[in-house]
Simulated scan of single mutants.
Amino acid sequence: MPEAVSAPDVRATIGASEFDRDTAVVRRAPGVYDTDLSAGWTIINAVNGGYLLAVLGRALADALPHPDPFTVSAHYLTASRPGPAVVRTETVRTGRTLSTGQASLVQYDDDGEEVERIRVLASYGDLAGLPDDVRTAAKPPELPPLEHCLGPDDGPAPIEGGSAITDRLLLKLDPATLGWALGQPSGKGEMRAWFGLADGRDADPLSLLLAVDALPPTAFELGLSGWVPTVELTVHVRCRPAPGPLRVAITTRNLAGGFLEEDAEVWDSADRLVAQSRQLARVRLG
C-alpha cells in the first residue's frame, strides 16, 4: 500500500465540485445536450482531451440506461475551444449488462458553420455489479511519497503560454520523469505522478477519463517540446476508485513518422488498477 498523503483542508464532494460544474450538460431534447467548455481546462489555448472525454461521458451516462463507462473510444477531429458546445448522442444497442452509444461534440465557427470536434463510441455498464475476482500480473507504479514529488509550482512553467488546467489539479510528478524540465530528458518516454483534483473531490469513473490524459506528454522525456495533440484515445474503466489520490503511469515505446502511442495505467489508494488507456498522438519534429 502507498504511504498515506494529506488531504486538502476543504474537500469538494462528487456532484458538487468544479469538475462536476465544468463537465455539466443540459438536456435540450432527447439525445441532445448543451454544455459550456470551460477555459479552466486548457493547455495554452487547447481544451484538454481528457476533460472533453468527461463531458461526452457525462452526456452518455444520461442518455444510456447504464451509469458507468466501461470502454470509451474517441477520435479528436478538430481542436475544441472554450465556450458553448452541443453534444449529440445516439443509442446503438442496449442489453442487460452493457449498453452502447455514440456521441459527438460540435461547436460553431466564426461564420456560424457547425464544426465537429470529437466523436465517441462507448459501452456503459454498472461497475457496482462486477464480481470481485481479480487475476492480474500488473503491479502499481513505484512512486516516491507525494511530498517528495514535484508539481507545477515547484519549477518553471513547462509549456510556454501557460496551462490553466494545472490550477484544477493536484499533480505531483515523480522526479525520475522530470529530466525534461531541467533540459535533461531521459529519452525513456515515461511519466509518473500522483493525481487528484485540486478541490479534494474524490475520483469517480468520469474523472478517470480525465486522469489518463492529464499528465505532461511522454514526448517531453523523449526530448521533444510543444503541443502534442491527441488523434485517438481509448479508455477502459475497470472499477470504481477508492477515495484518495490516484497514481498514474504512462509509457511510450514507439515514436515513428511523427506519431507516438501513450499507454496509461491508473491505480487507486487500494492498489487496484482502476483504468487503462492507449492514445495515438502527433508530435512536432525538428
Rank of each mutant, 00 (worst) to 15 (best):
T35N: 06
G189Q: 03
R11A: 12
I159N: 05
A46E: 02
T218M: 12
L52S: 03
T234H: 00
A157D: 15
L143P: 05
V86N: 00
I165D: 02
V212L: 00
V212Y: 04
C239I: 05
L170G: 06
D263N: 12
G286I: 01
N48S: 07
V235R: 01
S38K: 11
L121C: 09
L255T: 05
T230H: 11
S277H: 07
F220A: 09
V55P: 11
L206Q: 03
V235P: 02
L60R: 05
S163V: 15
L178G: 07
A39W: 04
E232L: 00
P156R: 14
R282F: 08
V231M: 11
T100R: 15
R117H: 04
T252K: 04
I44W: 12
E113C: 09
R81A: 06
I43F: 01
V237W: 08
R11V: 07
T94Y: 13
A157N: 14
T252V: 10
V26P: 00
L146T: 08
T71V: 14
R21N: 09
V134Q: 11
S80F: 02
W194G: 13
L52G: 08
S17P: 07
A59N: 10
P84T: 11
D36R: 13
A16S: 15
S186P: 02
E232N: 08
A29E: 15
D126K: 07
Y51A: 04
V72Y: 08
T71R: 14
D202Y: 00
P141T: 10
P145G: 01
P156V: 08
G125L: 05
R119Y: 05
R11K: 15
E113H: 14
R28K: 08
E116T: 14
R88Y: 06
G179K: 15
